[in-house]
Design a binder for these strands. Structure first.
Lengths: 340, 340
DNA sequence: TTGAAAGCGGTACCAT
DNA sequence: ATGGTACCGCTTTCAA
């Protein structure tokens, strides 16, 4: 409408040249002032003029131009997770982002939904991130890591359960979770243990290592493990519960508390006694476990703070050669309540 | 160490000039081939040579250089949410990202944790996104919107409950949720209705509009509303439940199903009959509501598909003048179960 | 069909 | 204390 008649300079993006012109100085001086370049002395009056000009024009530097010139970015790229992440990981991510920002990094989550493996990695590489911290949402191959490194990434860190050659793998040992659960159940006298595996795509990332840990402990203690695929809906749980007694299980470990709650309800509706007939165990120690009756036994996970990981990222970025020790990021311990 | 002796070109990032040199052509030709520029004919042998050279070097184009030259990006920036988002929003975001990618946008979530209002907006603006779709995680002011527009954003869309001047506000009317809940409760004969307000920071974004809707309906029907601050932990719920009878409430609407579950448990532990003595209502229609006893009444939310929003974003980007109709993104309806 | 060259917005070196 | 200027990687006229 009246845009062209009335609006003041709504048109073009102001550049540092515009600021320079308005302040009556050179672009170099603008750069010096706005970046507080310490290696060069600019008089106070000039500084003021430049700042005022920038303010007046609403100048915002162009990140692309800056990093093009600099030859590198300060961007840390986190592949966006593809499934609803629990409060645990959410908190962890928040801390990580906050800490990275404090270290002057730009944190960006990149959604790579339609892309697979190296396609996604290539898309990341186009942004020239200085670091990539992957949870394992996307298959990171050695060649993918190489591509990132070649395009300027100084740190490629994966928290995935399995390691990737070339990347700094910080193993978040999900198998300890399953191990803890089974250890607890065996100690309480259970021998035939079902393990609920979410059918939802993407979840296998965590679910597989967890059942792997369960298997390991079972093998060591002579217990029996039976995988039980389960979709996160009432029907699937009801179906599983209906055939329950046929299976001859005396315990079940359910990936996490949400799935445990779902199955426990279905078992109760079938008249199966918990924990007498079947012990139920979850994981993640969500609040809801304490609200159920019987109260849900679970595996509590102690996650490293995001701050620590941020510092690690920073160390690796500063000196990629110095391989940091690959400390485990998680602790896991069984929490006994009433369902086991 | 032995890097300079043995490693094959692990050193520098290959540029299009490197590709050109290896293929024996000019940088222009490389650009034409790699972008399939249709306005120019390149012979098939040349194309092959260029592609092979790019492949061999592991060439990845530099997004910053490209957009600097182009004068604009294809980046859609989504401010990262600051609190754990339920399955509803997660699904919505996934769809949105997927659809935007199909329309050839680069979708990036930007975490603005330590930054407030215009600071955050400025950080976004440095990336020169072509569109910003905000849920309202950060206070988007009219001046913030102006800054984004000035730096090249052709679409600034907010889904926040409250509108922002200058932005395309696509109101996601959370107040309908609270309204539905109270309507339902009043219809079932309740008159004194508590409304649970999460104490967790960030949640007020949704919680405020929801109670506002509740207030409106209450005012229209002569019911009484009492806000009940509640932290998401057992102690807070227990404390609230202990003083329950003093308040003389015959119903409570609890922001969402998670908080409803928390409070319902505490009320039951106090021996308060549900729904006889106090009706309980949640929102979001989470699966867990059907697993509780009594089954939780709730407000079901129908969310628009992310695809639709993606198309809207695209329309606005192509022609910012054409103001699209501001259709509501949500439907809400009460689901009666056993707790009310 | 291909190449030379300008220029996008900053930064930093070298003069003045 | 400031200004001139080359250059980062890529796209795109314009010429050849």
């Amino acid at each position: 409408m009246s845009q062209s008649t009335n609006q003041p300079a709504e048109r073009s993006v102001p550049t540092s040249a515009d600021v320079a012109r308005l302040a009556g100085v050179s672009r170099a001086t603008v750069s010096y002032v706005l970046n507080n370049t310490s290696s060069v002395r600019i008089s106070e009056p000039t500084r003021r003029r430049v700042r005022e000009a920038a303010e007046e024009l609403g100048y915002v530097p162009h990140a692309a131009a800056r990093s093009l010139r600099a030859g590198h970015t300060r961007m840390v790229l986190l592949p966006a997770v593809t499934f609803p992440v629990g409060p645990l990981h959410h908190q962890f991510f928040k801390e990580l982002q906050w800490a990275l920002r404090r270290l002057d990094y730009t944190v960006v989550q990149y959604g790579s939904l339609g892309l697979d493996g190296d396609e996604a990695v290539r898309a990341w590489a186009e942004l020239r991130p200085v670091a990539v911290v992957s949870l394992g949402e996307v298959g990171l191959t050695p060649s993918g890591v190489a591509m990132l490194k070649r395009s300027g990434a100084r740190a490629v860190i994966t928290l995935a359960p399995r390691r990737v050659e070339g990347a700094h793998s910080l193993v978040m040992d999900q198998s300890a979770v399953g191990g803890c659960a089974v250890t607890h159940l065996v100690q309480r006298g259970r021998r035939s243990i079902g393990v609920v595996m979410p059918r939802e795509p993407g979840m296998e990332l965590f679910a597989e290592p967890r059942i792997e840990g369960a298997r390991r402990v079972a093998a060591a203690t002579g217990a029996r493990i039976e995988p039980l695929p389960l979709s996160y809906d009432v029907e699937s749980a009801t179906a599983l519960a209906r055939g329950w007694r046929r299976r001859g299980l005396d315990a079940v470990y359910a990936y996490n508390d949400d799935y445990a709650m779902l199955l426990m309800r279905a078992l109760q509706d079938e008249g199966i006694g918990i924990p007498d007939e079947t012990a139920v165990m979850g994981a993640d120690d969500l609040l809801l476990g304490r609200l159920l009756r019987p109260r849900l036994s679970t595996v509590h996970i102690d996650m490293v703070t995001g701050r620590l990981l941020a510092e690690l990222v920073d160390r690796v970025v500063r000196d990629p050669a110095e391989a940091p020790e690959l400390r485990d990021l998680m602790g896991a311990r069984a929490v006994h309540r009433d369902s086991s």
